[in-house]
Design a protein around this nucleic acid. Sequence first.
RNA 1: GGCGCGUUCGUCUAGUGGCUUAGGACGCCGCCCUCUCAAGGCGGAGAUCACGGGUUCGAAUCCCGUACGCGCUACCA
Length: 488
Amino acid sequence: MISEKPRVRFAPSPTGYLHVGGLRTALYNYLFAKKNNGTFVLRIEDTDRNRFVEGAIENLIESLKWCGLNFDEGPGTENKFGPYLQSERLQIYKKYAIELIEKKYAYYCFCSTERLEKLKEEQQKLKLPQAKYDKHCLNLSADEINANLENNLPHVIRLNVPLNQKVNFKDIVRGDVEFDTSNIDDQVLIKSDGFPTYHMANVVDDHLMQITHVIRGEEWLSSTPKHILLYDFLGWEKPIFAHLPLLLNSDRSKLSKRQGDVAVEDYRKKGYLKGALINFVALLGWNAGDDVEIYNIESLIEKFSLERVNKAGAVFDMDKLNWLNAEHLRMKSDSELLQLLRDEILKSEFNTLTLPDEYLIAIIRVMKERVSFIREFIDKCTYFYKVPVVYEEASVQKNWKEETPAYMNKLAEKFAGLVNPQKEDFETALTEVATELNIGKGKLIHPLRLAVSGVSTGAGMFDLLFILGKEEVLKRINSAILNIKQTT
RNA sequence: GGCGCGUUCGUCUAGUGGCUUAGGACGCCGCCCUCUCAAGGCGGAGAUCACGGGUUCGAAUCCCGUACGCGCUACCA
């Protein structure tokens, strides 16, 4: 446990949807906060006007909420640390940028993109280890700067990175990391449109919002020294860093849209349960050190620790997600499943049917062990929703023999005599018929299943009969006798 | 190219110097259960712990090097 209450943030840029990698980052932040009685902040890093996407923020928050990762502070919550949209904090960044300029830790740069490009080209031609800004504008006189500013010359503000210094920090996941400032460019802090870059905004906000732990993706590890410099120049206390391993495609490249679904909403639409998605994503890069694989959010909060986060990237394995989905589905109560199934029916071809709760719950009970997705309570047993019109060819060949119609007639007769039959009554009746005909029960069960369901797989035979009810069963048997054509 | 990070079964991982003939999970295969399909139970195949050197009585575990992968190298985040 952390003694002081930690404050962590999930700081996505609103590019249109919540990426599963982002979900994992958000989740670890959330778990860490909840575990340590801390605060989970959502901050929107919308400082790139070129990448503005209409509705992206709403969509992001919607996905987060669906997953159950509710933030304590963020857009819409009134708090002394707001606003939480960086685009609404421009003056704040400007203020600190000016402070840095006054301390000579930053400077105005009036270089044109043309000059910058030319500089880069020349440096590449010289095969320099890397292209860096040449600090040209650092040498401008005060008069020149003022004149340029007065003439409204386009400009940026750059970080004045010192040469030949070591910057090191301790990362919770990676241990000690060290960089040489000679490899760090004079990063733009404030762009010519007045917006800050990520580096400036994230440091200023993390400080002002009193963030204690910066938990983010590994792609930020390389720019952390710039942030360290900024904290030092501004005289601020640094947060603790934890850089998370990346999520990967099956070919070990960074998880991308090209190779499958990456948005949380995609998985939601495909029918994954939020509990399963969370469980799965939590285990991608973290484990408690034991053999437990199934978690709900509470148990994750209880067990989570940043120290047990792995260093290496993890491949997103759909097979395991599917298995987890089935496990989570089975953990749900009948009434929870009923609600989910009703939602699913509304979206299906059976949305006009009036189905009583007891009927659907009966289906849920017999199909629960046979499905991985809610939609399969429909797709894997459509015979509960409609009369079979086609009969599975392979099963017809295997089970529908010359004598079968006679057997089925006999069964139908026996069933017809039953009064308000329960599951066991159907079973007894079938056993009697088998005995009378002097055949094995299988000789009746298989063709009966085909006649009643049209397929060869599914719920137990007598469950099936009971759920459908005597009248429906009789109808289907008779219809099958008329419609199934023997193939032999 | 430079800088940084990483590397245990196909995949997610356990492992922090002797308990390890490297354990679990998903997937795969087989058997059992059984009216089918599942679920469940049992079992199997699957990792020379990237490679090469050290340190040590002893290394997947510590050190060095190499290879490979990934990330960053923007007035994108």
